[in-house]
């Protein structure tokens, strides 16, 4: 109800009547997306549901056995839990790293902003495989991190860094960093600088202004960033297998293993759906929470 009014106000033009006269023009533009979405997203998901409910690829009897197995085999649920945990930890670390970068960017002169945006986007321009392998070089037994620790006398024997979960979180956080930084920058740049100045002038202090003005007003960007990083950290199969190694099992590799190696398609489909539902629920939850917080911030 409020959205169209707001759109008119935001567009700031006196031509709402013109667009109202022929509304079908804009609506038809949505059609290709709808068709694309139906063909390549909804249809595959429907197929996935159908496969997950069939006994096996040859016996087409309906069964819930694969979902029962998922919830009762004592392996699948922990794998799902660990995957979601990995997503949460990565999102949190990425947020802690990104927010200061975004603040620095926002405060920088336009000339420096050009340099900074290049540095922020740079990781996106190299392949995920290359970025991931860099972490192998850093964290390996004879890698940079262990060499540094050894030279500083902090460790006698090489420490086991690679193939551990904390290492994976750190690597993912670095790899996903632009996905978090860019939405926050976008969000920060829409904040009227006078609000900050007013807060400072009225004795809000730098810390108080950050916590009570800047942070709440940038929440939409933070939420967008968290969702992007969460979803991509949960599905980063390349990084999971290269930095996590073969011993840490997360959902994408589990699906790959069951689908392509064990050839248990119905079970792989069931796992995929469980991951999909779990991530969607978390996304909806964060979104709802975010909307509530944003409304509170703007009130």
């Amino acid at each position: 109800m409020t959205t169209p009014d707001r759109a008119v106000i935001l567009s700031g033009s006196g031509r709402p009547a013109a667009t109202r006269r022929r509304p079908w023009r804009t609506e038809w533009l949505v059609l290709p997306v709808v068709v694309f979405f139906a063909l390549f997203v909804l249809l595959p998901i429907a197929m996935l549901v159908a496969i997950s409910l069939s006994q096996s690829m040859t016996v087409h009897a309906l069964t819930l056995a694969h979902f029962v197995r998922f919830f009762s085999d004592g392996l699948s649920l922990p794998v799902l839990g660990r995957t979601l945990q990995l997503g949460c930890e990565t999102s949190l670390l990425t947020l802690l790293l990104s927010y200061p970068i975004a603040l620095v960017f926002n405060a920088a002169s336009p000339r420096w902003q050009r340099v900074l945006i290049f540095l922020i986007v740079l990781p996106l321009l190299t392949s995920a495989v290359v970025r991931t392998f860099a972490w192998v070089v850093i964290l390996g037994r004879e890698g940079l991190a262990n060499l540094a620790l050894n030279h500083l006398g902090l460790a006698d024997a090489p420490m086991r860094l690679l193939y551990t979960e904390p290492a994976l979180v750190v690597a993912l956080a670095q790899i996903e960093l632009p996905l978090m930084t860019l939405p926050i920058i976008a969000s920060l740049s829409t904040i009227d600088p006078r609000l900050r100045e007013a807060s400072l002038a009225l004795g809000g202090g730098h810390w108080g202004t950050l916590m009570r003005i800047t942070l709440p007003l940038s929440l939409p960007g933070v939420i967008a960033g968290v969702l992007l990083v969460f979803a991509s950290a949960c599905s980063a199969i390349i990084t999971h297998s290269i930095v996590g190694g073969g011993r840490l099992l997360f959902m994408p590799l589990y699906i790959y293993q069951q689908g392509l190696q064990a050839q248990a398609w119905p079970f792989a489909a069931a796992i995929s759906l469980c991951l999909l539902v779990a991530i969607l629920s978390l996304v909806v939850l964060v979104n709802t929470l975010g909307r509530y917080l944003t409304r509170y911030a703007y009130a």
Binding site: I237, A268, S272, I279
Partner: peptide
């Protein structure tokens, strides 16, 4: 492991 990193749907639906 060809599926693109951010292509969440293709990763979650590896059978596809």
């Amino acid at each position: 492991f060809r599926p693109s990193r951010r292509d969440f749907l293709s990763a979650s639906a590896a059978t596809m």
